[in-house]
């Protein structure tokens, strides 16, 4: 009796572990993946900023970063799967509670980054600078303010 109880218990525990683990793993994975994508986005942003501030002479690379950004913007909508507010993340629940408002900033990111990639092709540095700022404000800032939790 005792042994069979134990055995069922152990079996149940194994079952629970199996059942819970994949779910946990994918959600954790989704968070890690999202943060990695956002780091890449931030990386291109930081690189462009250093170029625009003339800290480095790579003006001709602005186009590379701008098109990478436009490509990354297109996957932005996919990096917020439902349920991925569980765990070590700064993504706010409002992302899923207010899907319409969230979709708006995702779209703003796509539109603004496409514009930036286009301006990059004209080699008009002033126009590029202006669009760089606009993207920062209307995409990055506009999403981080309502949808990213402060560090706690």
């Amino acid at each position: 009796m005792m042994i069979s109880l134990l055995r069922t218990g152990a079996f149940a525990a194994v079952l629970v572990t199996f059942a819970a683990f994949p779910a946990l793993a994918t959600e954790d994975g989704a968070i890690k993946h999202r943060q990695a994508v956002m780091k890449a986005v931030g990386g291109h942003m930081g690189a462009m900023s250093a170029i625009l501030k003339k800290q480095v002479p790579f003006t001709k690379d602005l186009g590379v970063h701008a098109s990478a950004m436009a490509e990354l913007a297109k996957i932005a909508a996919r990096i917020f799967p439902e349920g991925s507010d569980f765990g070590e993340t700064r993504a706010k629940e409002d992302i899923w509670a207010k899907p319409k408002e969230f979709a708006k900033v995702v779209q703003a990111f796509i539109t603004e980054s496409e514009k930036l990639a286009k301006v990059a092709k004209t080699s008009d540095i002033n126009a590029f600078n202006a669009q760089f700022k606009a993207m920062g404000k209307n995409a990055c800032g506009a999403c981080h303010k309502p949808f990213r939790e402060k560090k706690k």
Partner: peptide, 22 residues
């Protein structure tokens, strides 16, 4: 630049309270 646009030197963007201040 940060006080103007919210961009941090590493390319990240301020959010939360500081986003509002900016």
């Amino acid at each position: 630049d940060f006080l103007d646009s919210g961009m941090l030197p590493d390319g990240d963007f301020a959010g939360s309270d500081m986003g509002d201040v900016i």
